[in-house]
């Protein structure tokens, strides 16, 4: 027998006795594993739910774009399909960009709070120690209004809020994370209900103390100078 035939027989024997059983065992064993990639291909809805920790509202709200492309537009102004060059550094309105920071100089060396200091002064950042990217995601950070952005109000509750608040609805996600300071004059325009509620409550509090602080202080002082009585204040006879 020539060596080549011996080698081929050995390979066949090796395949039958070792590789084939291993392949069978491996296939059998793999059937018990949870393989996400296969599910993703098999079911778009399942893939959806893997990322969604919500109640299922998401499917009712989500609308996938059909043939349309995400357009960069200025609300109320139509200047053709692409009014701004996607590479332009002079973009004035960034609410609908795929990369909201496109064209910003020295962007890589900057921190979020360098340009957005006020956005770091809220309960989520200060008390819960959330970082910007835990909600806004990694680069490129799409504009909040961008069609595919997870921050888009149509899916924000499912992709962002539900990470920490399972069960969040679209209405729940309308909570203003970066709420303006209610005491500032600008809040009367940006969030008038909050500003009015704040000032009405402040007026009630200030009114209460304007009335009762001097009243209580005067009462205390007056009792100090009351005439001495056997046991207590002689309210009735010193005047």
């Amino acid at each position: 027998m020539i060596p080549e035939e011996i080698m081929r027989q050995r390979e066949q024997k090796h395949f039958r006795q070792v590789l084939l059983p291993l392949l069978l065992v491996g296939t059998f064993g793999a059937s018990f594993l949870n393989v996400h990639a296969q599910e993703e291909v098999a079911s778009a809805i399942r893939r959806y739910k893997d990322r969604e920790a919500s109640t299922g509202y998401y499917e009712a709200y989500e609308v996938r774009p059909q043939r349309s492309m995400p357009l960069v537009q200025i609300p109320g102004v139509q200047r053709g399909l692409f009014p701004y060059s996607p590479t332009s550094a002079q973009t004035r309105i960034r609410t609908r960009l795929t990369d909201s920071h496109l064209g910003i100089k020295f962007y890589n060396g900057r921190r979020c709070v360098d340009c957005h200091p006020e956005q770091a002064r809220d309960i989520h950042t200060i008390r819960a120690n959330l970082t910007c990217r835990q909600c806004h995601g990694g680069e490129p950070i799409a504009s909040n209004e961008h069609y595919f952005s997870p921050m888009n109000p149509i899916r924000r509750h499912a992709y962002i809020c539900a990470k920490c608040h399972p069960g969040a609805s679209a209405s729940y996600a309308a909570y203003i994370i970066h709420e303006p300071n209610p005491a500032l004059a600008g809040t009367l325009k940006s969030f008038p209900v909050l500003a009015w509620a704040f000032w009405i409550m402040v007026a009630i509090a200030v009114g209460t103390f304007v009335l009762f602080l001097p009243h209580t202080l005067l009462w205390g002082i007056r009792e100090i100078f009351m005439k001495k009585h056997g046991e207590a204040g002689n309210h009735g006879t010193d005047k």
């Binding site: 608040h165 609805s169 209405s171 309308a174 909570y175 203003i176 209900v193 909050l194 509620a197 704040f198």
Partner: peptide, 20 residues
């Protein structure tokens, strides 16, 4: 109970409720 309350009012109502 924010999930319950945002069922009948928008989420920004919680911003107002917090300050009140």
């Amino acid at each position: 109970y924010p999930f319950w309350s945002t069922g009948f009012m928008p989420g920004w109502g919680l911003n107002v409720a917090f300050w009140v």
